[in-house]
């Protein structure tokens, strides 16, 4: 898989747009899922992914290590999400929470989803960077050193902030 990805990156760097398309298809749903959790809005999430793809394509020549392609892509996407979070807080597309709420209404009051909604709501309340650190860990399963290179933050800072964010989140949910 890595060799394939590396080969595709090299092709893409030479201008092969189909190679880029294939790279993108390897994890585009992960990109969207992460973006969606960050931004809680389909349109915004799609915009962020699209902008990140355009940037990744335009700048793929600068990628020195082809094996880092996915993390590098997430790095670009994180920057887009970070920017969008500010846009969103301006526009306040919080109604997506209502959409989630409405969907929850039509289901039987399922405790797990209600709980998850609450956690998610608290995640959304975290500051943009903490939110991304939490989501990169929880949604993408990235380890601290990977998040460190994606976001450009010292790995210990990542661990510390993640720890604090989780402590805060822990206080708002209960476990059985």
């Amino acid at each position: 898989m890595d060799k394939k990805m590396a080969d595709l990156v090299l092709l893409a760097q030479q201008g092969e747009v189909n190679a880029f398309g294939e790279l993108y298809s390897l994890f585009w749903q992960e990109l969207y899922r992460f973006s969606y959790y960050c931004l809680s809005d389909r349109q915004d999430a799609e915009d962020a992914v699209q902008e990140a793809a355009v940037d990744a394509w335009s700048n793929i020549g600068s990628l020195k290590n082809p094996n880092c392609f996915k993390n590098w892509f997430f790095s670009i996407l994180s920057a887009k999400c970070s920017k969008k979070i500010r846009h969103i807080m301006r526009r306040r597309q919080q109604l997506t929470f209502d959409e989630l709420q409405n969907q929850a209404d039509t289901l039987s009051p399922d405790r797990d989803i209600a709980l998850s909604l609450e956690i998610y709501q608290h995640i959304l309340k975290l500051k943009a960077d903490d939110r991304m650190i939490v989501l990169l860990s929880v949604v993408q399963g990235y380890k601290s050193h990977e998040i460190s290179s994606i976001l450009g933050i010292n790995a210990n800072t990542v661990r510390s902030r993640l720890h604090r964010a989780l402590q805060k989140l822990k206080n708002h949910i209960s476990y059985d």
Partner: peptide, 21 residues
């Protein structure tokens, strides 16, 4: 806990690989 929200994510329409290219 969070993964239970996955099925609530609306499908992305405009960013499939074919569209993105």
């Amino acid at each position: 806990k969070l993964s239970s929200l996955d099925n609530l994510i609306p499908p992305a329409e405009d960013i499939s690989p074919a569209e993105i290219i």
